[in-house]
Simulated assay, not measured.
Amino acid sequence: MIIQAIRSLIFYAFFFSLTAVLAIPFGIYSLFGPKMSGWWVVKFWYVANLFLLRWIVGIKTEITGQENLPDGPFIIASKHMSDWDIFALLAATNGRPTFIAKKELLDIPFFGWCMQNFHTISIDRKNGQSALPQMVKQGKAAVERGCRIVIYPEGTRRAPLDEPRYKWGLAKMYVAQNVPVVPVAVTSGLYWPRNSLILWPGTARAKYMKPIPAGLSMEEFHQTIQERIEPETTKMLMQDIEQGIARPITPALQARIDAHRA
C-alpha cells in the first residue's frame, strides 16, 4: 500500500502541474478568443492524463461500444465514480464537448475560464429548483450549436455497487432537447475510489450502450435510463471483482458485493 500511495502522489503531482501549465495560458486565451476553440489543448490534457494513469499508477483504460455513438449532437449520460470518467468520455464528444458542472468550478481562475470556452453548463445549487430551468435552457443552446452534452444523472460520484440516486434533471433535459441519449456504464470506482488519495492498478472500463431515441415521456425515460445503466454497471463491476482487484475491499464494499451475489 505504501508503494501505491507513493505512485498515487507522483501522479497527482504530474496531474496538477500539467493542468496548471495548460490552464493558465489557455484560460487567458479563453477570455478573448472565440468559443469552442482550442480542442487540441483539451485533447492533449485528457490523453496525457490517461497516459500518466497507465504508467504511473497502473490504471489502464478500456472503452467499448463506440459504434453506438450517433452522428450529430446527443447527450452522454454516464455513471460517475471518479475523475477518470471525465478523461475517458471526452473522446466521444468529437471536439465539441459541453459538460454540466457546478458553478463553483467555473469560478476558479484560469481552469474555470477554460471550461467556459466550451460552453460548460453552469449549475448554481444555491438557487434550488430554479437552477433546473436554467440548465435546460443552456442545454438547448448547446444542442443548437451541435455540441455533445456530458451529464452524470446522479449529480455526483457514487461508490461501486451503491444504491442509485438518479435525479430528474436529465429526464427534463431529454424531453426539452429532443435528441438521443447514450447511456454509459463505468467501473472506474474500483481503481480510483472517491474520497481516496490512493489509486489502484487495474483496467478501468467504460461501455457506450445503444442510444435511447427521443420521444419518450419524462417518466418513461427516467425509468429507462436506470434500466440501461444500472444492470450493465453492476455486471461489469462484478466481473472485475470476481477476476480480482488490487484495491483493498472495505467492509462497506464487501457488504454490497455480498448483497449482489445473493
Rank of each mutant, 00 (worst) to 15 (best):
N195Q: 13
P251R: 10
L18T: 13
R148Q: 09
P201D: 07
W192V: 02
Y29I: 11
T187E: 10
G38N: 06
V179G: 05
F118W: 12
G112M: 07
S82P: 11
A13T: 12
L106C: 12
W200C: 08
Q138M: 08
K140S: 14
P251Q: 05
S82A: 11
G58Q: 05
L161G: 02
R158S: 14
Y166L: 15
F87V: 04
A252H: 04
G72L: 04
W84I: 04
F32R: 13
D258N: 15
G202T: 00
F99V: 00
G244W: 07
D107L: 12
L237K: 03
T61E: 14
F15C: 10
W192F: 06
S122G: 10
R54G: 00
M36H: 14
V57R: 08
P164E: 07
G244T: 07
D162T: 11
F32G: 05
A20N: 06
I63Y: 02
H260V: 14
W40P: 01
M1Q: 11
P97S: 06
G33E: 04
E232F: 00
I225P: 13
P183T: 02
Q129T: 13
I28F: 15
Q129M: 13
D107G: 12
T98G: 08
K60A: 14
K43H: 13
K126T: 12
G38R: 06
G215W: 01
L18M: 10
L18K: 09
T19C: 10
A185I: 00
V181S: 02
V21Q: 06
F99A: 03
G244A: 07
R148Y: 05
W113H: 14
A13K: 04
E163L: 11
Y166G: 13
R96C: 02
M1G: 11
Q116P: 11
A13H: 04
K137S: 08
Y29W: 15
V181N: 01
C147F: 03
H80P: 10
Y46E: 10
R205I: 03
I76Q: 02
Q129L: 13
I123P: 14
Q239E: 15
S217T: 15
